[in-house]
């Protein structure tokens, strides 16, 4: 390195860096407070309803807490007026899992395709963006009318599935773009060079290396579908998904059982996502343990 005169300012900075505890600029503290406020606003209201859902029969929609019981959870699953929460829940989970699998496969393959230019790539890309930004209800109406016109009965596993995919797939492909940009093409070339067939190189090299990115796509797919409302409204047929159930509840239920539902669905989605992440961690640990040379 060439020697260069060092200004007193730089020297001070270097000394601070060497001391290991550089002074933070005032903007750090301002932004830290903003971040804290944001997180508080993100979690605060939700924590409120989790707490309020634990009231007893006297409970209302606002603080202060009245008693402590599981009354509203029982109410949620026994009262007729709250609708078919259990069925909606099952359908939503099944639909979300189905959407997740299809989204991961479809986005992965599309990600492979979009790595190079091909005839018509621009058309597909802009169709995809279109599908992403189209108002959900409009698309739902279109799909509903299309099914009606074709004489097909709409249901959660046909029309609603397609409606969800038209939203989760473009999202997944965008995530794949970001993931793929960090993938070194020479890995794939090396695999081919070493004698792997196209499928072997995808299965043994590309997929394992991209696994974390694919997991991100899966999480996106699951949450987007599990929570999807506007596109489902006109496409789910006679049986409701969970968000539709919740929607109808918000219109006619004004008791803390609404909050109880919020608590239950939150726990459920955390459980599912936790199980996915846990399963992957387990697989990785087992893989590491089964590493034959250890």
């Amino acid at each position: 390195m060439r020697a260069r005169p060092i200004s007193p300012e730089q020297r001070a900075r270097l000394r601070r860096a060497a001391a290991g505890a550089p002074r933070r600029p005032w903007t750090f503290w301002v932004l830290a407070i903003l971040f804290g406020a944001y997180v508080l606003a993100l979690y605060g209201p939700m924590l409120c309803i989790y707490v309020l859902s634990l009231q007893d029969i006297r409970g209302g929609l606002v603080f202060p807490m009245k008693g402590l019981s599981l009354h509203w959870f029982v109410d949620l699953f026994t009262q007729v007026r709250t609708g078919d929460v259990k069925g909606g829940f099952q359908r939503s989970i099944s639909l979300a899992l189905l959407v997740t699998v299809l989204t991961v496969v479809g986005s992965f393959l599309a990600g492979l395709a979009f790595r190079q230019r091909f005839k018509g790539d621009g058309v597909v890309f802009y169709l995809m963006i279109g599908s992403l930004v189209a108002p959900g209800l409009v698309l739902g109406i279109g799909i509903g009318l299309l099914f009606q016109y074709l004489g097909l009965p709409p249901s959660w596993y046909t029309s609603a599935l397609g409606a969800h995919l038209s939203w989760t797939l473009p999202f997944g492909v965008l995530v794949m773009f970001a993931v793929m940009s960090r993938f070194d093409r020479s890995w794939e070339e090396a695999a081919r060079d070493l004698g792997a067939t196209r499928w072997q190189s995808i299965w043994l090299v590309v997929v394992p290396i991209l696994a974390p990115g694919l997991l991100a796509v899966a999480l996106f797919g699951f949450t987007l579908s599990y929570d999807e409302f506007a596109r489902t409204l006109q496409t789910s047929g006679s049986l409701n998904t969970l968000p539709l159930e919740i929607w109808s509840m918000t219109l006619n239920v004004t008791s803390p059982s609404l909050y109880a539902l919020g608590t239950v669905t939150t726990i459920a989605s955390f459980l599912i996502i936790g199980m996915c992440l846990g399963g992957i961690a387990l697989i990785q640990r087992r893989r590491a343990r089964h590493n034959p040379s250890v």
């Binding site: 393959l109 395709a113 005839k119």
Partner: peptide, 27 residues
């Protein structure tokens, strides 16, 4: 390369055409 790319992209297209292009046309 084109054929292969279209093979990879086909699931996306198979979703976009019946669940985006056609519905919008219907609307």
């Amino acid at each position: 390369a084109n054929t292969l790319a279209w093979f990879y992209i086909s699931p996306l297209v198979l979703v976009l055409v019946p669940f985006f292009v056609l519905p919008i046309l219907v609307v």
